[in-house]
Structure formats: C-alpha cells, structure tokens
Design a protein around this nucleic acid. Structure first.
Lengths: 153, 153
DNA sequence: CCGTGATTTCAGAAATTTCTGAAGATTGCA
DNA sequence: TGCAATCTTCAGAAATTTCTGAAATCACGG
C-alpha cells in the first residue's frame, strides 16, 4: 500500500465529510488527522500535507476544535502546538449533525402554532413534529448502546 | 395567526432544511408543500408564493421528486401538474441523509486497506469503521420502531 | 524583555453555487 | 392539426462561499 493510495483515500473521505456538513478545508484537515501515521500533528504538518496556506489551516483547526473532533495537547515546552483526533470524534460528529433534529422539531412546533386544527397544513406539520420527536427520543439510547458495545471489548 | 407568521415560519424551516443538505430552492419549495392550506400545489403556485422564476421551481420540484419527498398526482385532465408532500416524507428524508453513513463506512474500509496493523492510522480508521458499522446496524430497527408506533395510533 | 518562529486575522481574489430569463418542447383541448 | 398554457433546459448573471497572502499578534527560549 503506497502513500499515493493512502492520501487518495483521505481526499475521498474529505469529500464525503463535506457532504456531511463540514467545510471543505475542515474536512480535508480532519482526513489528515485520521490518516497520518504520526500520533499528533502541527498546523505546519497539515499545511505541508495539503499544500494550502497557514491561514486556511488556522481556520480549519479552529473549527474542528470548536465541534470537539480534535484536541490540543498539553505542549511540552514546544513552540508548535500539537493536535490529534479525539477518541470520541465520531459519536461527537454524529451528535453535532443531530442538532438539526432539534431545530426541525422546533420549526414544526412554530408552524403548528400558525395553523388551526383541521387545516391540511396542521395535519402535515403534526406528522412532521411526531417523527422528529420520535427521532430525538431514540438518540440517547442509541449512543448509550454504542458506549456499552465499545466498553465490552 | 396571520399569514405573515406562517410564511415566516416556512422560510425559517427552509433555512434548516438547507443545513440538512437540501438545495436552497428545494428547501423553500418543500416548505411551501408543508405549510400550504391546499391539498395539492402546482409549479405556478410555488413560483407565485416564493416570487421566483418558473425555471427555478422546475429544478426544485424535480429534485424533490427524485429523493421521494413529494409525489405527482394522477392529473384529472388538467393542464397543470399537481404535486403534494408524500406521507412518508420525513422518514424518507432521514434515510436519504443516512446514505452518508454508508459512504463513511466504505471510506474507512478503503483507508484501512492502505495501512498495516499496528499503525496509529490503522487504529484510528478501525475505530471509525466500528462506529459507522454500529450505526448502520441500528437504522433498520429505528425505522421499524417508528412504523410500529405510527400504526398503533 | 528581545528575537524568532508560529499562529491569527482579514480584505480581496478565486472558485463555486444558485438563480434568472428566454427559447424550445410538451400537452390538453377545440 | 393548431393554439395556448405549462414545463424544461441551459447559458450567463448574480450571489455566496472559500482560499490566499500578508500584516499583526502572540509566546517561547535565550
């Protein structure tokens, strides 16, 4: 397996992550965190690997920190900051994306308040409301099952 | 509840749907399907409601049909085509968005094939693989529970 | 507290996405 | 078949997003 294929796979993953809601540069940076052989990486490493400006990397790393996908390591007296993928990155990403569920539910509630019972719109909005409420109720159990399965190995 | 508030709520929902992956115009059109008081709408209705060109509406409706969120009604000898929101629109939208899960899993597998056991990258990719495999396994049960709950009311 | 290299910021450039408008195709009806 | 209204398509315009490059800021080591 050459380096060639590895970084091709990394770039492909970055495209998928973009579909999933991440910004392009954040997605590419995340792919580096995932595919690198080093335990930790610096902003310079990422810039070199991707061939992009330091400014872009700064923004991307900041975004990944904000959503909790990577972490800054206690720097042992080094001038460069070191970062790495967090252990719980994927459940975190999943939960972040599920913020949309909350907002959809709220949108349905707001919409229902603008209609009166019996309207076709009222029925449609209620149906939407019920689905997202169901979904929201399922998420905690789902994440709990993942934790259980993971700890039992 | 005035029309004013209703369509404000509709536009707000459209923004959320955009976050969720829909194109802007598709999202706005879907909001019309959801909030309208009529049982069905035509492309002209949507264009008037949103104040956009017929061309934009054509593209948006086509996209919504493709992903199965709306349906074309058997036109009773009318010149205009009539459309409406499908009953299972929300589970359908949810499933569509979960296509990403399949692709993430595949990306992890591809990545693993470019590493050797023991590499830090191998470990990270395996962890990613396991999470998305778990997630994929949970989805059918989740949708089944929704159907059960819905039919029992 | 300097000097040096790393990081942040941000205005403008570049790239991409999205919408329009008009021409062409389609379809129901007389 | 011919008319009229609707729908589709697509090239270019407009709007938005994203990236760069360079200057400002920051922080460690001396």
């Amino acid at each position: 397996m050459g380096e060639q294929e590895r970084w091709q796979a990394a770039e492909r993953l970055a495209l998928v992550l973009t579909e999933g809601g991440l910004q392009r540069m954040s997605a590419r940076a995340l792919a580096v965190f995932l595919f690198t052989d080093a335990d930790t990486v610096t902003m310079g490493d990422i810039a070199d690997r991707l061939g992009v400006s330091a400014g872009s990397v700064s923004g991307a790393v900041k975004a990944l920190l904000t959503v909790g996908l990577i972490e800054r390591l206690p720097a042992p007296g080094s001038r460069r900051e070191h970062y790495r993928l967090r252990d719980d990155a994927w459940p975190t990403l999943f939960s972040t994306q599920n913020t949309v569920v909350h907002v959809m539910l709220q949108a349905a509630k707001t919409g229902i308040a603008t209609t009166t019972s019996g309207d076709p719109a009222h029925a449609r909005l209620t149906r939407m409301h019920d689905f997202y409420e169901f979904l929201l109720g399922e998420l905690p159990g789902l994440l709990r099952r993942w934790e259980e399965q993971r700890s039992s190995r």
